[in-house]
Simulated assay, not measured.
Amino acid sequence: MRKETIVENLNAVGERIVTCCNNCDRDPAEITLLAVSKTRPAEDLRSAYTAGQRHFGENYLQEALEKQDALSDLDIRWHFIGPLQSNKSRAVAERFQWIHTVDRLKIAQRLSSQRPDTLAPLNICLQVNIDNEQSKSGIAPQELEGLAREVVQLPGLRLRGLMAIPAARPNRQAQRKPFIELARLLQSLREAFPEEQLDTLSMGMSADMEAAITCGATIVRIGTDIFGVRNYPE
């Protein structure tokens, strides 16, 4: 994609964030824009970086590692936002600052043990299957506190909050329902673990970003509205 188009799109998304925050009495500085860059070439990420974007989210590990090598001269904050297999956890532990998709203890334990001592603890979000969809990853809401109790004891990790990918809904009011529930779950964790820095709600994408922000999102994951419709390989 043309660099100019990416810059224009980033500016448009930024304006949407500011407008939404003004409408719901939030500070736009509370919102981190995560550019979802899966399937995009490294040069597109470089264009976004030169426009001021610093946080990038990748779903596919091998693709992400290739981009990290190609963009090693840039101070990018890398977020892993895809499903993670146990046998691929080491690369995430060693080369990312965030992972949003932890939903079982085994993965958390591996990430913690594989996080290099020379790096700060890996920031993680627990992924919640907020709509109980068979096709999606994530822990059931009723199992969340038990997993969190185990995770906060792992020295290589820092539990920051929750992530969800709700089912598509037809309008803003309907979109708010799962986001309100995820915010409620985070508040419950804050009460259960007052000593932890539970400050993150990773929720909202291109189609439902505004609904997520009004419900307390602190990270919005935007791909299509920055980089355009993806062309997946056959």
Rank of each mutant, 00 (worst) to 15 (best):
C21Y: 06
P166M: 06
S206D: 11
Q114I: 02
G204D: 02
M209F: 10
G161F: 01
A212E: 00
Q109A: 07
A183M: 03
F227S: 02
N231K: 14
K136T: 09
S202M: 06
C125T: 02
L144G: 00
G52H: 09
I81E: 05
L111Y: 01
A217L: 03
S113P: 01
Q109F: 01
R90D: 04
Q187V: 07
N171M: 08
F96D: 02
D225A: 15
A183W: 00
T101L: 05
Q153K: 12
A12G: 13
R190G: 02
V18Y: 07
E63R: 11
V13P: 10
A35W: 03
A148G: 05
D25C: 13
L159V: 06
R184I: 05
Q153E: 12
E181N: 10
D44E: 15
R115D: 01
R149F: 01
L198F: 01
L111H: 01
D75Q: 13
G138E: 04
P28S: 11
V102K: 00
V229S: 13
E8K: 15
L71R: 13
L185W: 00
C21A: 11
I213K: 03
S86T: 15
D25M: 13
T214R: 09
R158E: 12
T50E: 15
T5I: 13
A42F: 11
F96C: 04
A108K: 00
L61C: 13
P233F: 09
A207T: 15
H100M: 07
N171V: 10
T101H: 03
L33Y: 10
A35N: 12
K38G: 14
D75G: 09
D131F: 07
A217V: 04
L147R: 03
A35I: 06
G223V: 11
E43P: 08
R184N: 14
V18L: 14
R160T: 02
H100P: 01
A51D: 09
Q153M: 12
L157K: 02
D225G: 14
I226H: 06
G228K: 05
K88T: 13
D103C: 05
R95M: 06
L45H: 07
A91F: 10
G138F: 00
R46T: 00
V229P: 09
R26I: 08
A51K: 09
S206R: 09
L189D: 03
T5H: 13
V7S: 14
S202F: 01
Q53E: 15
D27C: 12
R184C: 15
F96A: 01
Q68H: 10
I139K: 04
E210V: 09
K106C: 08
L74R: 05
L65Q: 14
A93R: 04
L186W: 05
L10T: 08
R110L: 12
N22V: 08
K3Q: 15
R221D: 05
G82C: 10
R190V: 04
